[in-house]
Amino acid sequence: MTGTLNLTELREGGAQDLIEVSRIMEEAFDPRFGEAWTSAQCLGMLSLPGVWLVIASFDGQDVGFALARAIAGEAELLLLATRPAARRRGVAGALLRAIVAEAQARGVAQLHLEVRAGNDAVRLYRREGFEKVGERKNYYRGKMGQAFDAHTYARELR
């Protein structure tokens, strides 16, 4: 993948997509930070009410996904990942905007997320209107046991 990505499809995902979601996470998340979920965690989350998965594809290949849940007028972006080869081509922004649009369609007033301190994704979240609202010390546990802080962000949707 070179040049500008022409995103051809954003589609609703489901349990049938979890093998590819796991592959994307394996490529996208550096294991030293402990951010990736297992397939079992993703499947368990998908079985809950108010949870949705969006898959981004380009030229027939899944290049990213976002997982979110809504409950009681609020929503949380649980995971967002893009394959390294598809980064900086608008995939993550398109996925995030799809999550925002679906959350709004579900009547959500505020969308939350948390991200590892120092993660480059913070630029995207700020550009899309999210503001830092908190911090979780030592939230992530890396592969070698090291701890990493998480920052919480929120965006009003109404």
Score class of each variant (00 low, 15 high):
92 A>M: 08
18 L>R: 03
150 A>V: 00
130 F>K: 02
27 E>G: 11
60 G>K: 01
4 T>S: 14
113 L>I: 05
96 L>A: 15
54 V>W: 00
18 L>W: 06
16 Q>G: 14
99 I>T: 13
4 T>N: 09
112 H>P: 01
143 K>C: 04
46 L>G: 02
154 A>V: 07
104 Q>G: 15
47 S>R: 04
28 A>L: 04
39 S>N: 11
62 D>Y: 05
14 G>R: 03
13 G>W: 05
37 W>P: 01
43 L>E: 06
152 T>Y: 08
119 N>S: 11
85 A>D: 11
45 M>N: 04
11 R>Q: 06
118 G>T: 11
113 L>M: 07
27 E>K: 15
93 G>H: 04
26 E>L: 15
35 E>F: 03
111 L>K: 02
147 A>G: 13
10 L>S: 02
5 L>Q: 00
49 P>Y: 02
29 F>G: 00
61 Q>M: 08
27 E>V: 12
59 D>M: 05
51 V>M: 09
123 R>Q: 09
127 R>I: 03
53 L>N: 13
110 Q>W: 02
90 G>N: 13
130 F>Q: 05
60 G>S: 08
25 M>Y: 01
146 Q>Y: 04
156 E>I: 14
121 A>C: 04
112 H>T: 13
107 G>C: 12
88 R>S: 15
82 T>W: 12
133 V>M: 15
80 L>E: 07
71 I>T: 13
59 D>N: 13
124 L>I: 11
77 L>A: 04
11 R>K: 05
86 A>E: 07
116 R>Y: 01
48 L>I: 03
24 I>C: 06
157 L>A: 08
127 R>E: 14
